Computed example of a mutant assay.
Amino acid sequence: MRTHPRKHITVVGGGLAGLTAAVTAAESGAAVTLYEAHRTLGGRARTAEGPYLTNEGPHALYHHGPHWAWLSRRGLLGPMASPPAREGVRFRFHRDGALRRTPPLGLLRLARHKAEHAPVDTDFLTWATEREGAAAARAAAHYSAVALFHHDPGSLSAAFVQERLRRAAALPPEARYPVGGWGELIDRMAGYAGSLGVRTETAARIDTVPENGPVIVATSLAAARRLLGDDRLHGTGGRTALLDLAVRTSRGDAFVVSDLDAPGWLERFTAQDPSLAPAGQQLLQGHFPVGPGESGADGIARAERLLDLGFPGWRERTLWRRDSLATGRTGAVDPPGTTWRDRPRIDRGDGVYLAGDEVAAPGVLSEVSFTSGIGAASLALRQLDLPGGESPAGLDLKHA
């Protein structure tokens, strides 16, 4: 009996976007090969090996996002930690040079506005100032940086920032954390992809576009630009100083310190997941966006000033530390007059599709990667006349 070969889709990049695309394609019957240049999967969701289970900067999964339901339906969520209620009294706000227990009331009022009520073509600071005054507007802009990784959130589209402010300030909090680090989630996704027949090759750098069927490029835009030779692929993400710190446990340490005087965030991740560090130790992670005229050291200096306030004696208690600078790896941002639809399209023509956190797909943080991964796979399936080419929530495949 003669058999017909399965239609093939290639995925380049094994982060959240690439794994989501590979799973979506394989569930619809395509033969999928996934290539990852690193020796392990995960991209920016990769969890470090060793006693301190860190990621590339602070990570959170918003449980009202579309990818939460996608993962849940497939049994891939696994154990998730919530922000600890018992730590609520130690959520601190750095405002006017001091730590405070509460944010400005104007920030809380701004956070109640729906994103669709904020204009696309006006910057957030102007729009927010008209409603609650300049001080509350600046504080709200800086608070929203937890979901932006940008040095000047107030200069961005009001609609774009407001969506992130509203969700980052939601009560009860939307943020959830995979127990054991994001690598646990990646392992579950990779295992499920393997059960569907996805062939994965790690430590495999792809320098030319494969020709055997549709190709989904799920890498950074810089890597996609090199692979595709397309100089139009430029992102709008900024530069962010990242700090990872392990300290001996001390009563009274803050859970979160949100900088309202400038964009910045420190979080004690072991408060919700003690497994991230050895017993008796706490793991802190923070991100501090830096502007064009600043260095990574400038961002780290701001982090240390917050540490002095929220974690007394941290220098003497430090057991391990890592500083780094993330450049162009923090997701796209939308300036006034633009939306996610103005980012590089998923469909690049000639059977090539993009996925990642800087492409034309809606969502907050990792939701962009998930949504674009599903969208890219759906378009590739349509090209092969396979079922499953459905539009993910909020994305019209006709214009992707």
Rank of each mutant, 00 (worst) to 15 (best):
Ile300Thr: 13
Glu267Lys: 03
Arg341Ile: 10
Ser324Glu: 13
Ala279Asn: 07
Gly280Trp: 15
Asp259Lys: 04
Gly286Lys: 04
Thr318Ala: 14
Gln285Met: 15
Gly313Trp: 04
Arg305Phe: 04
Leu307Ser: 00
Arg329Ser: 09
Gly252Lys: 09
Ser250Lys: 08
Asp273Ile: 11
Leu325Thr: 01
Asp342Met: 10
Phe255Trp: 08
Gly252Ala: 09
Glu304Cys: 14
Phe288Pro: 01
Gly280Cys: 08
Gly280Ile: 09
His287Ser: 08
Arg322Ile: 05
Asp334Asn: 15
Gln281Arg: 13
Thr327Cys: 02
Thr327Glu: 14
Val256Asn: 02
Gln285Thr: 15
Pro274Met: 14
Glu294Asp: 12
Leu306Phe: 11
Leu325Glu: 01
Leu309Trp: 05
Phe288Ile: 03
Phe311Gly: 00
Leu283Tyr: 02
Thr338Glu: 08
Leu319Phe: 02
Ala297Met: 11
Arg321His: 11
Gly293Glu: 13
Thr330Trp: 03
Ala297Gly: 13
Gly291Leu: 11
Ala326Lys: 03
Arg315Tyr: 06
Arg315Thr: 14
Glu267Val: 15
Gln272Glu: 02
Asp334Thr: 14
Ser250Gln: 15
Thr318Tyr: 06
Gly280Tyr: 08
Phe255Ile: 01
Asp334Lys: 06
Thr318Trp: 03
His287Ala: 14
Thr327Tyr: 08
Ala254His: 08
Asp298Thr: 11
Ser275Gln: 08
Glu267Cys: 13
Asp273Lys: 04
Ala262Glu: 06
His287Gln: 10
Thr318Ser: 15
Thr327Gln: 13
Thr330His: 06
Ala297Asn: 07
Ala297Gln: 13
Leu319Pro: 00
